[in-house]
């Protein structure tokens, strides 16, 4: 049994690959080998000898699917991979589109469908939530400054101005909104999302959907420490039926398949939970779920293989993760090996 995992970039904005592998390795019935697929010769996970046996450089999916597939097939010739678990946003569309092609060379994957990936888009999520009666911040799409004038009067400042892919700013008045509108549109294009600003604190859910509407498991977490990049550096597992139920409902309505992270904002005045975003993969804090009793990465591997998995009904509340940094020492030879040969052998 050989599993390949992407996203070993556990840097200050970490990819989920290392915690996913850690989860898989710790499963009682896991007996196999894990290899890493990396985009950069300096992905830290590749140099951590206990993470993956070998690490292969692969091209970015933005370079084209044929080339991407070719490199994966080339690695498959050597490794005979059974399952690939992709963990990064930017590669999800590629794996969704390559799913059957990969299957034809014997590789199974667990990845949401293209439709599921599209619905969770920043410009689409609001209408999805509206349809299924899930609270989400009110959302308006603007493609010109004129559209900003036409925003309904019930939308009060401050508002959040968001790009279609990335970037978000809080605008306190029309002038700020207009200036952020121009700033974001020049970078990310249209439409621009104007969103109701909800003051409160953020809660997250890590979950796994089985593709038939069922939720294999779901764990809620409150961030305890947030870096200046907005990433949780410490968090605690909490008991919160409401956000877990909303996550289950979304998974059910979409028949979501694969890992997901649901981001919620809880209004500090009304205590109401608003769904902000769905990330189409496990979060980087997924190991907290494992430690709290739900080994979702391992369940994902089993799902990918078409095995039946038991659903997790509960988890331990009050488990804390604290991320830390550690300077791994290696030799320039290792860097040369991966740069020149495209593979780093840790055995």
């Amino acid at each position: 049994m050989k599993i390949a995992v992407t996203g070993l970039n556990n840097v200050d904005n970490p990819g989920p690959g290392v915690p996913v592998i850690r989860g898989i390795r710790e499963a009682d019935d896991f007996d196999g080998e894990i290899i890493g697929l990396i985009y950069d010769a300096l992905e830290p996970g590749a140099y951590m000898s206990e993470v993956a046996s070998r690490n292969y450089l692969i091209p970015y999916p933005s370079g084209g699917l044929d080339i991407y597939f070719e490199r994966l097939s080339q690695i498959n010739e050597i490794e005979k991979i059974d399952v690939i678990i992709p963990t990064l946003d930017a590669e999800m569309f590629a794996f969704a589109k390559l799913k059957s092609k990969l299957e034809s060379i014997g590789i199974k994957t667990l990845v949401p469908t293209v439709e599921q990936l599209t619905i969770r888009g920043k410009d689409k999520l609001f209408s999805f939530c509206e349809k299924y009666n899930i609270s989400a911040p009110k959302n308006y799409l603007a493609s010109s400054v004129q559209d900003l004038y036409k925003l309904p009067s019930e939308l009060k400042y401050p508002v959040v101005i968001k790009g279609i892919f990335y970037d978000a700013y809080i605008a306190n008045n029309f002038d700020e909104a207009e200036s952020y509108f121009r700033k974001i549109s020049s970078k990310w294009g249209y439409p621009i999302i104007v969103q109701e600003y909800i003051k409160g604190s953020e809660y997250n859910v890590c979950a796994l959907g089985d593709g038939e509407g069922g939720t294999v498991g779901a764990v809620a977490m409150k961030k305890l420490f947030i870096t200046d990049k907005g990433k949780g550096w410490a968090g605690v597992s909490i008991e919160d039926d409401e956000i877990i139920d909303i996550s289950r409902k979304v998974i059910e309505e979409l028949n979501w398949i694969g890992g997901a992270e649901f981001e919620f904002m809880r209004d500090e005045e009304t205590n109401k939970n608003y769904l902000l975003e769905i990330n189409p993969r496990f979060p980087a804090w997924v190991y907290l779920a494992v430690a709290a009793g739900q080994n979702l990465p391992h369940a994902a591997v089993q799902l990918a293989q078409g095995k039946k998995v038991e659903t997790f009904e509960s988890y331990e509340v009050g488990k804390i993760f604290i991320r830390y940094s550690w300077d791994l020492i290696t030799d320039i030879k290792k860097f040369e090996e991966i740069t020149v040969k495209g593979v780093l052998n840790n055995e």
């Binding site: 320039i332 860097f335 040369e336 740069t339 020149v340 040969k341």
Partner: peptide, 17 residues
């Protein structure tokens, strides 16, 4: 310069292929 065509500049820490 290694046989693989990997070049490391010890003075600056830069590497090249």
């Amino acid at each position: 310069v290694s046989e693989n065509g990997f070049l490391f500049l010890p003075g600056t820490g830069e590497s090249f292929t």
